[in-house]
Simulated scan of single mutants.
Amino acid sequence: MSGLYERRLLRVEKSFGVLEKLWSVPWLFVLMLCAMATVGYVALYSAGGGNPDAYATKHALRFGFGLVMMVGIALIDIRLIARLSWLGYAVGLALLVLVMVHGQVGKGAQRWVELGPVQLQPSELMKILLVLALASWFQKATWEKVGNLFFLLPPAIAVLVPMGLILKQPNLGTALITGAIGAAIFWSVGVRWWKFGLLFGAVAVAAPIAYDHLHDYQRARITTFLDPESDPLGAGYNIIQSKIALGSGGMWGKGFLQGTQGHLNFLPEKQTDFIFTMIAEEFGFVGAIGTLALLALVVAFAFLVAIRCRHQYGRLVGVGLATNFFLYVFVNIAMVTGSIPVGGVPLPLISHGGSAMITAMLGFGLLASAWVHRDVEFTSAKE
C-alpha cells in the first residue's frame, strides 16, 4: 500500500515539475517569435500576390509545428541534451554525406535530401548540432586546457569536417557561417588571440588560391558585387532591382500589396532571399527598422541566456546560437543592400522555406531549454 502511495506521490511531483518548467518557459521570447512569424506571413502574403496559398499558409503551418516543437524541447533537461550532443553531431555528418550521395540538385547545388515526406537541408541542421557538440567539449575546459593545442585539435577538426562537406555541395555562404560559429565558441572559451591571428593569416594567404577554385557563378557574384553595372541584365540584375525596391519604399513605403518591383516580378526570389526588400518597399524605412528591431531582440535574448546560465554548456549554447542567428540576419540584409556578394541565405522566420524554419525553431527550443534549466547543477556532460 505504501509503495502505491509513493508511486502516486512521485507522479504528482513529476507533474508539478512539468508545470514549473512550463511556467519558466520564456513566453515573452515566444511572443517575439510570433511577431516575427507574423511579419513573415504578411510579407509572404504580399509576395504571393494576395494569395495565401502561394507561400503564407505553408509559412504559418510550419511555424505552428515549430512552435510546438520548441516548447517541447524547452521542457527537456539541458543535461540530457548535453549527453546526446556528439551523437547528434554524428547524425548531422551522416546527413551531409547522404546529401553528397543521394541529394537533390537545385539551382546548381546539391543541398537537399528527401527523408520520407520531408525535404531537409542538412547544412542548416549541422550548424545547430555543431554548437551543441562544441559546447559539450568545452563544458568543463579549464584555462590550461584551452591553452593546449592538442586539446583544441579535436574541436577544430569537428568544425572543419562539416565545412568541407558543405563546400562540396557547393554552399560557400553556409560553410563560412559554420566556421564563424566555431570561431565564436573558441573565442568565448578563451582561446588566445595569437592563435586567431595565425588563423586569419592562413586564411588571407589561402584566399587567392581559394578564389581560383570557386565555381564560375561564385566568382561572378564577387565581380558583380564590386561592379553591379558591369552586367545589369545578367549577374548584376538581382542586386540592382533590390536597390531600386529598397530606395522606392521611402520613409513609409508604397503600401501593403502596392510594391511595384515585387508585384511586377522585377524582384527575384522575393519570397526567400529578397523578402526584406519586399518589406522595405511596401512599408518603407519604418517597416524595415521595425523588422530589424525584432530580429535584434532575438539576438539579445540569446546573449541573455549566455549571461544568465550558471553552467558553461548553456553559456556556450547561447553564444553559438546567437552567433548563428546574427549571421543569418547580417548576411541576408547585407546581401540585399549590396554590402556583400549575393548568396542564398534566408531571413529567419520571415523567408519562405521549410528547412530554415524548422532548424531555426530547433535552435530557439534549445535556447529556451537553456533558459528553463539555467540554474541546474551541471558537473559533467557525461552525468
Rank of each mutant, 00 (worst) to 15 (best):
F196Y: 10
V25C: 11
A35F: 11
D231M: 12
G234T: 06
F266M: 03
L267P: 07
G236A: 08
L165G: 02
V131E: 06
I289Q: 12
A300L: 15
Q241T: 12
T323H: 03
V105H: 08
A135L: 01
I76R: 06
A370R: 02
Q104S: 08
A180Y: 05
A202P: 01
A220G: 04
E114K: 13
A56G: 06
F186Q: 05
G284F: 05
D227C: 01
E6L: 13
Y313D: 07
G164V: 12
I181Y: 00
R315F: 06
G354D: 10
R8C: 04
V376T: 13
I78Q: 07
A207S: 14
L67C: 12
P117I: 13
G236D: 05
P122M: 09
A37K: 05
L93M: 13
H311W: 09
R219G: 04
D375P: 04
S2P: 00
A280W: 03
K58V: 01
F276C: 09
V25H: 12
A368N: 09
F285D: 03
E383P: 00
S355N: 10
L149P: 09
A360Y: 07
A184V: 08
P122S: 12
G259S: 11
N265M: 03
S248N: 07
V12I: 13
M163C: 15
P155K: 08
F283A: 00
K270Y: 02
A300E: 02
L4H: 14
L33G: 02
G201D: 02
L226W: 06
G103M: 03
M36T: 05
E144D: 15
S380T: 14
Y55N: 02
G64C: 08
I181R: 01
Q312L: 05
I166N: 06
Q218L: 11
A74H: 08
G106R: 15
D375L: 04
D273C: 07
L327P: 03
P155E: 08
F186M: 09
Q169W: 11
G40S: 12
F150C: 01
F256Y: 15
L93P: 00
D77L: 04
S85H: 10
T174F: 05
L28A: 12
G234D: 13
E20H: 11
G49M: 03
P162W: 07
V203K: 00
G344E: 13
Q110M: 02
V336L: 08
G253P: 04
P232T: 14
F200W: 13
L349F: 15
S339Y: 00
P122K: 08
N324Y: 14
M32K: 01
Q261Y: 05
V305L: 06
G17P: 00
D375V: 00
L10N: 13
G49K: 11
G173S: 15
E124T: 03
W371T: 06
G182N: 03
I209W: 13
P155M: 06
V336T: 11
L129N: 00
R310L: 07
V161T: 14
M32C: 11
L98D: 05
A207R: 04
A360C: 15
L257F: 13
F256M: 11
P170D: 07
V329Y: 00
A175Y: 04
V12G: 02
V131Y: 04
V71P: 01
Q169P: 04
L160G: 11
T379W: 08
R315C: 12
W23M: 09
V205W: 11
Q241A: 08
Y328G: 02
